[in-house]
């Protein structure tokens, strides 16, 4: 028992020390957000601002509202949320189904196609950008959100691979037993594999969400009107080539933008913990 307490205290010390390292960027972000512009990015660092400007958050959200072409921050947020919704649902639904096939069903050509699937991730993205753009041009989708979410409904190599590896860790005896009871593949997938894979599915959902939330290149090349922009494009408006960057406002806006992801993550974790109790049974 003594060993146990020792282990726990070591764990605690390690967790607290590492936490300081990992929370640093967020504290820096918040710290910069409440500074006057002349104290941002200072060396040696100004840790405590001479005056806390909490109004920066409000100002960041309303940045440029006195100008003619103003698009409210809220519109960008709305666009991003809708887009993320479509991508996350599509990613989870399609990849779970496809990965099941690759992980637990035997069919002719499966391993070959899986190898091809892996290979598609290995060609660097820049050389695919122009031909991919051409496809969406022929479909007449430039300027709409479709190029950004429709492909998510047809699977992605990364998520298929990830889920396949997870599905493979689930004992095959479980499916065999169900098959003897006369269950089809869909039933096995639906009532055995899915419930046991919540941690993995949450991870895939979270990555899809973050990927969409932070995606810059996709919206940059496909969207054509300011009011359709997403948050990651909106964050660019605090930079100005010839006028410098409003660091305090940019960081205030960035904090606001990552806050929802942080909240989503915080609650998603409950899924991981649920996983424990289920696997404990077997």
């Amino acid at each position: 028992m003594k060993r146990k307490t020792f282990e726990t205290s070591v764990t605690h010390v390690a967790l607290v020390t590492l936490s300081c390292l990992f929370i640093f960027p967020f504290l820096w972000l918040l710290d910069t957000a409440v500074k006057p512009i002349s104290e941002t990015m200072k060396q040696p660092p100004v840790w405590i601002p001479s005056k806390f400007e909490f109004g920066n958050f409000w100002e960041a959200i309303n940045y440029g509202s006195d100008k003619v072409g103003y698009i409210p921050f809220l519109v960008y947020a709305e666009n991003t949320v809708m887009l993320a919704m479509l991508v996350v649902t599509g990613t989870v639904v399609s990849n779970a189904i496809v990965a099941y096939s690759f992980a637990r069903v035997r069919w002719w050509g499966r391993d070959l196609i899986f190898a091809v699937t892996l290979a598609t991730m290995m060609v660097p993205f820049p050389v695919m950008m122009v031909p991919t753009f051409t496809i969406f041009k022929y479909l007449g989708w430039i300027g709409t959100y479709r190029p950004l979410w429709v492909p998510a409904w047809f699977g992605s190599a990364f998520s298929i691979f990830l889920l396949r590896q997870f599905f493979k860790t689930i004992p095959f005896e479980l499916s065999e037993a169900a098959k003897i009871d006369g269950a089809g593949e869909w039933t096995i997938f639906r009532s055995i594999i899915l419930p046991l894979s919540k941690p993995a599915l949450s991870v895939v959902a979270l990555f899809a969400f973050m990927g969409t939330w932070n995606d810059f290149m996709g919206p940059l090349i496909y969207l054509l009107r300011q009011e359709t922009f997403t948050l990651s494009l909106g964050l660019e408006f605090y930079h100005s080539k010839a006028g410098g960057t409003q660091w305090n406002l940019l960081m205030a806006a960035t904090s606001i933008v990552i806050l929802p992801v942080l909240v989503v993550f915080f609650f998603c974790q409950r899924q991981f913990i649920k996983g424990i109790s289920i696997t404990g049974i077997k």
Binding site: S101, I113, G184
Partner: peptide, 28 residues
């Protein structure tokens, strides 16, 4: 029967692969 089910499950991706991946890959 199993093979047919497997193929059906993989269908979305097979379509995605052909529609959104093959052309850019071959063109590059």
């Amino acid at each position: 029967k199993e093979a047919r089910a497997g193929f059906l499950f993989a269908l979305p991706w097979l379509f995605g692969l052909v529609a959104f991946m093959f052309y850019p890959l071959l063109m590059s």
